[in-house]
Simulated assay, not measured.
Amino acid sequence: MARVKAAMGRKARVAADLMDAAAFEGKLHARSATQQLEHWARVGRLVSAQPAEASRRIEAAFAGALDERDLSAEERVVWNAELDTAICEAASAVRFGEVLAARGVTTVALDEHGRLTHHHPDRTKPPG
């Protein structure tokens, strides 16, 4: 998580992947990472304020009551953005290492220095 200065001097936590993407995208548009995040937030606020009927149709598609192919092109843009966000939020909440350790699976991950480390279910460390 990165911290950025938000409105009225408060600090806001931002996921590292979003900060990285904002820094990259911001360079393309002569914006700082913080300015890019603000831009995305403003665009997202306007997209979320879709007319009530469009919002109901998008919610119906999420509930499976309406096939997403029946959404208009504009509704599909919002549907895809909402779906991508929901997937990212759900994935960030899962602790895959903990889930796999509970199943007896050894995992490998990068540590804070970029080195591969083994994580054994019994929390022992491999030699060397």
Rank of each mutant, 00 (worst) to 15 (best):
E59T: 11
R56F: 10
M8S: 15
A93R: 14
K11E: 11
T34A: 12
P127R: 12
A21G: 07
E89S: 10
Q36V: 02
V99W: 09
V99N: 10
A16V: 03
P51C: 08
A60W: 01
V77K: 04
N80S: 12
A12K: 09
D84E: 14
A49C: 02
G104Y: 01
G44M: 02
I58R: 01
H118T: 15
R45I: 10
G26Q: 02
K5G: 13
A6H: 13
M8K: 15
D111F: 07
T106L: 08
A60C: 04
A49L: 03
Q35P: 00
R13Y: 11
I58V: 12
D67V: 13
D111L: 09
R57H: 01
R3S: 14
A102I: 09
W79A: 03
I87L: 04
R76I: 05
M8E: 15
T107N: 06
K11A: 14
H29V: 05
A2P: 03
R42D: 08
K125A: 11
T34P: 01
R13E: 15
K27M: 06
L83K: 06
T107D: 06
D20S: 10
A22I: 01
E25Q: 12
R42I: 06
A109W: 08
G104L: 00
V105D: 06
K5N: 14
L100I: 07
A101C: 08
H118W: 14
A21P: 04
A109C: 09
A109K: 08
E38S: 09
L37W: 01
E98V: 03
V14S: 01
D111Q: 05
A7K: 13
Q36I: 00
K125F: 08
A93W: 12
G44Q: 04
G44S: 04
K125W: 11
P51D: 15
R56P: 07
S48V: 09
R76V: 00
E112S: 13
A6T: 13
V77E: 04
V99Y: 12
G9L: 09
A49F: 03
R103V: 14
L83H: 10
C88H: 15
L66E: 02
A93Q: 13
A52T: 01
Q36T: 00
V4Y: 00
G114T: 08
A41I: 03
A15S: 13
V47W: 04
H118L: 15
A63R: 05
L28R: 00
F62R: 08
V47R: 07
K27T: 07
R56H: 14
E82F: 09
A101P: 05
A6C: 12
H39A: 01
L116Q: 15
E82D: 12
R13L: 12
F62H: 06
G26K: 02
L66R: 00
L37V: 04
A41G: 02
Q35A: 05
L110N: 09
A91T: 10
L110H: 05
A23Q: 03
L83T: 11
H113G: 05
E59P: 03
R76Y: 03
G97Y: 03
I58F: 04
K27R: 11
H39D: 02
V4G: 02
M8C: 14
A101G: 01
A52K: 04
T85L: 14
G97C: 05
R3K: 12
A16Q: 07
L116D: 15
Q36N: 00
M1H: 13
